[in-house]
Amino acid sequence: MASSKQQRTDPTTIAPKSRTGSAKKNSGRPGVRPPKAPKVAKATARDWIGGARIQTLPLAFAPVALGTAAAFVLRLDEDGVGWHWLRALLCLIVAVSLQIGVNFANDYSDGVRGTDNNRVGPRRLTGSGAARGRTVITVAFVWFGIAAIAGIIIVVRSGHWWMLAVGAVAILAAYFYTGGKRPYGYLGLGEVFVFIFFGLVATAGTTYVLADTVTVESWLAAVAVGLFAVATLMVNNIRDIEQDAIAGKRTLAVMIGNLPSRIFYVVAMLVPFGILGAFTLLYVNAYLVFFVLLSALPACVIVLTAKTAPELILALRLTGLTALLYGLGLASAIAF
C-alpha cells in the first residue's frame, strides 16, 4: 500500500536528462555516491598500520616491563620464582594485542556512530570510508583472539584458572570502550578504565603471573604507568574536544572543559616522577630515570599552550615516548 505522505526528493540526486529526454540510469545499488562526491582511496598497508595507532603501544610495553622487573628481583628467593621468560613474553603479547584490538574496535565504533565525521587528527579507516566497517571490526576481534590465546596459555602454565575471568573482563572492557549501546568512553569513564587495565592489571598482573605474588614495587609502578595511560587518552581527547562535543561523545575532557583537561594532563604526567622519588630510595640507579623529564616537560608545555591539532599530536607522541622510556628505564633500574 502506498504511503499517504508525499516523499520529498533531493534535487541534487536526480540524474540529468539525456538529449532524448530520458533520465540516465542509476545502478539501483544502495550507497551509490552522488556524482560530485569525491572518491575515497582504499586503505593501504600504511593506513592499516596507522589504524593500529603505533604511538599508543608504549602503554603495552611499559607495564609489562615494570611488572617483569618487579618479579625478576625475586628470582633468587628460595622458591625460585620470579623469572619465566615465556610467561613474560606471553604477557607482552596479551598487552600489545589488547592495545591494537581496542584501537581497531574504537575506529569501527566511532566510525559507524559518525563520531569521526569531523575529526581533525589522522583519518580513520571506518569513518573515512577507506575500509568497510565489517573488515575493521573483524581485524579488532582477530587481535582480541590473539590476546585470548596467549592469556589461556599463561593460565594453563601458571595454574591460576581464575585469571580467565580477568582476561575476559579485559577484552570486554576493550570492546565496550566505544562499542555497544552505552559505551563507557562516551560517559567520561575512559580514563578510569585505562588506569585500571593498562596500569594496575597489566603491571601487577604480570608480576603475579611470574612470581605468584605482587610486591610494593609492582603496585607503585602500576600507578605510575597507569597515569601515563590516562595522560595519553586525555591529550587525545583534548585534541578532539570540540568534535566529540558535537557528536555527543562525552569524554572526561568534554565534561570538565578545555583548561581543566590540560591541567589534568600535566598532573597525570608529573605524578609518576614523584613516585620515582620513592624508587630512588630503594634502587641506586633509579635517579637516572629523571632524565625522562626531557620528553615529559616539553609535552606538558605543548599541551598547556597548544592551539592546533598538529601540536597536540606531537604531544601525544611525546607522551608515548615518555611512558616507554620511563617504563624501560625504571625496569632496568629495578632489575639490574
Results as ranks from 00 to 15, higher is better:
G121K: 15
T207N: 14
F336W: 15
I334Y: 00
F291T: 13
D79A: 13
A333I: 02
A173E: 06
S295V: 15
T305D: 12
N236H: 12
V214F: 07
R75F: 01
N258P: 01
L98D: 06
W162F: 13
A204S: 15
G205P: 05
L220M: 12
A168D: 06
L324N: 05
V96P: 08
Q6H: 09
T206Y: 12
A211T: 03
N285Q: 09
D240M: 07
F279P: 01
K24I: 12
F273D: 00
F141Y: 13
W219P: 03
I263G: 06
L330F: 08
A268N: 11
A43W: 03
R46D: 13
D240N: 13
L318G: 05
W143P: 02
G82W: 08
V192L: 14
L86C: 09
R29W: 02
A168Y: 08
S295Y: 07
L76N: 15
R123M: 11
P30D: 00
V73G: 02
G80P: 04
P183M: 09
G277L: 07
A174P: 11
A323V: 05
F279V: 02
V40E: 03
A165T: 14
Y326R: 00
A286E: 04
S218F: 07
T213N: 10
R119C: 01
G80A: 05
K181S: 13
W85M: 03
R75I: 06
A60L: 08
L330N: 02
D244F: 07
R123P: 11
T206N: 08
A105M: 09
L294K: 11
N118F: 10
R119V: 14
T126M: 02
Y283C: 01
R53Q: 14
L187E: 15
T9L: 11
S27K: 00
L98G: 08
F72C: 01
L270I: 10
G145W: 11
R53M: 05
V284Y: 08
P272R: 00
D110S: 04
R29Y: 05
G121W: 11
S97L: 08
A2V: 15
L314H: 12
Y283A: 04
A323H: 09
A174Y: 11
G205L: 06
V142R: 01
A71V: 07
G167E: 07
A315S: 09
I263T: 06
T12V: 08
W48Q: 03
V214L: 05
V96H: 08
F176H: 10
D10S: 07
T319I: 10
I153N: 08
